[in-house]
Amino acid sequence: MNKNYFILFGLLIVLSGGLLFLPEKTNYVQQSPESLMWDIVQPTRYISTDQVAKLIIEKDPLFQLVDVRPDYDFEAFSLPNSFNIPIDSILTDEANDIFNIEDVNTIFLSDDDIKADQAWVIAKRMGYKSVYVMKGGLNCWIRTIIQPQKPSESAPITEFELYNFRKGASIYFTGAELSTNSDIKQEVSITRKKKETVAEGGC
């Protein structure tokens, strides 16, 4: 046997042996710290509670709400149609399935915006696109949507329009009775589901 064959054998063994010394590679695509920082300094990820209220009322199919609070808090109170992914299980497969739905934007929310923002940073690092944060969180939700403050008399008209929207939304979300002032324009068209009679049955 030609001794050159042994050189070839040796070469192949050395090459394959060298593989064993290569460090393990992470097998997911992450966003680089630089571009992550660029995304962080943009305020475009914030969505106001008013917008979220509108999305829920209009049942916009392109948005889904993800609540990152612990599950016991979520069970006590949650926004309609929101998913519960506590922040410590944000990397699980179930969470991945929810984030990965195509063309659907995910809005994170928590008590305030810090935890939701942290969830957003992690999701962004993991390369998920179209994720957002509900500005102010549920505290802001209560202050603005459930208990809107009446603007002062001198406030511009837009403030009043916003207030009227919030009042309508508050009714939508709480089912509270409105002791009507006649001048309230209701912008929100409330399409509450009719109570089904037994005869109607399922599908």
Partner: peptide
């Protein structure tokens, strides 16, 4: 995968020699 590659190369080299 890397360890398997290494093992497989060893097997191949042995096979080369034995067939020869």
């Amino acid at each position: 995968n890397k360890l398997f590659t290494f093992i497989f190369v060893i097997i191949a080299v042995i096979a080369f020699y034995v067939t020869w």
